[in-house]
């Protein structure tokens, strides 16, 4: 009897320890990034592009990467939505009675979701070579769009499934066509669409491997789709490798900015999800 209890106590201790490690790792990471990045956070960091040449220039900030990230993540999310909303609607509202097929398609999107961004990057690079594009903002947007499509499709799919069938029946029984009914459903899930946008944007803004081959890198803010663009993760990756302290510091500051942006996005989407589900039930 004694031994049994001791064993349980021992494992319970291990469990608490494991929980502390898993939960604590978040604070450890964010803490490290804040500790290293905060000293380099200046107003110039947010408002100036880097000066004095790539990799060695000590002056300026990372406005190029901030704007570049917004362009890439924003462009990819918009393109992704244009493709994903019809797909999610089709899966849910136009495949009535073909449950096996629609579930198989859902699995394909799950699998697509699992494909690593480096493969999307390599494939995006292939597309660019095929069409004779140089590494540019457009190339980055295309690669990241491929990356976010499965995320958007599956998130929207889950959200549409929370809409009660009766609401669809109500619209249909007024004589709506399926498309008109779909518009009603889209109205009903507006908060869900915003959640999907946030999740996609958060994933898009943080990814490196997909933009590494495709977006190029530049100290300037891109003025057209065909110019190379920097993104925050790329700026972190490249600037950290520099031997010059100020450049490294820009890298740490970029890491801090990216972390804050991503945390805000994640928290917002979590809150929205909570509100959405509370509203539903």
């Amino acid at each position: 009897m004694r031994r049994r209890n001791l064993e349980e106590l021992f494992f319970k201790f291990l469990m608490v320890l494991a929980t502390l490690i898993v939960g604590g790792s978040f604070f450890l990471i964010v803490g490290t990034i804040f500790y290293k990045g905060a000293p380099y956070m200046t107003f110039d960091m947010l408002t100036k592009t880097p000066g004095g040449g790539f990799y060695i220039g000590k002056e300026g900030g990372i406005l190029n990467a901030i704007i570049g990230s917004m362009y890439v993540a924003g462009g990819a999310t918009i393109l992704g939505l244009i493709i994903s909303i019809p797909v999610a609607i089709y899966l849910n509202m136009y495949m009535d009675g073909k449950k096996f097929l629609s579930n198989t398609l859902r699995m394909v999107f799950d699998v697509l979701f699992g494909i690593p961004s480096i493969v999307y990057g390599a494939f995006g690079f292939l597309i660019m070579v095929y069409f004779g594009l140089r590494a540019s903002l457009l190339g980055g947007i295309i690669a990241v769009t491929l990356l976010v499509i499965p995320i958007l499709v599956r998130t929207l799919d889950e959200v549409i499934r929370t809409v009660p069938l009766e609401l669809r029946d109500a619209a249909l029984s007024l004589g709506s066509t399926r498309w008109e009914t779909a518009k009603v459903v889209l109205r009903a899930i507006r908060p869900g669409i915003i959640t999907a946008i946030l999740i996609s944007f958060g994933r898009a803004i943080g990814d490196v491997a997909a933009v590494l081959f495709t977006a190029g890198f530049s100290d300037n803010i891109p003025t057209s789709l065909h110019e190379p663009a920097a993104t925050l993760p790329l700026a972190i990756f490249f600037q950290l490798g520099s031997p010059i302290e100020e450049v490294q510091g820009r890298g740490y500051a970029s890491a801090l900015i990216l972390t804050i942006v991503v945390l805000i996005i994640t928290i917002l989407s979590e809150l929205l999800v909570k509100k959405f589900y509370k509203h539903k039930s």
Partner: peptide, 19 residues
């Protein structure tokens, strides 16, 4: 849709459209 237009449905619970 033309058949459904001829029939109003009142379901178990009210489902107002989101508007």
């Amino acid at each position: 849709t033309h058949i459904r237009k001829k029939m109003g449905l009142l379901s178990q619970r009210p489902y107002p459209l989101p508007m």
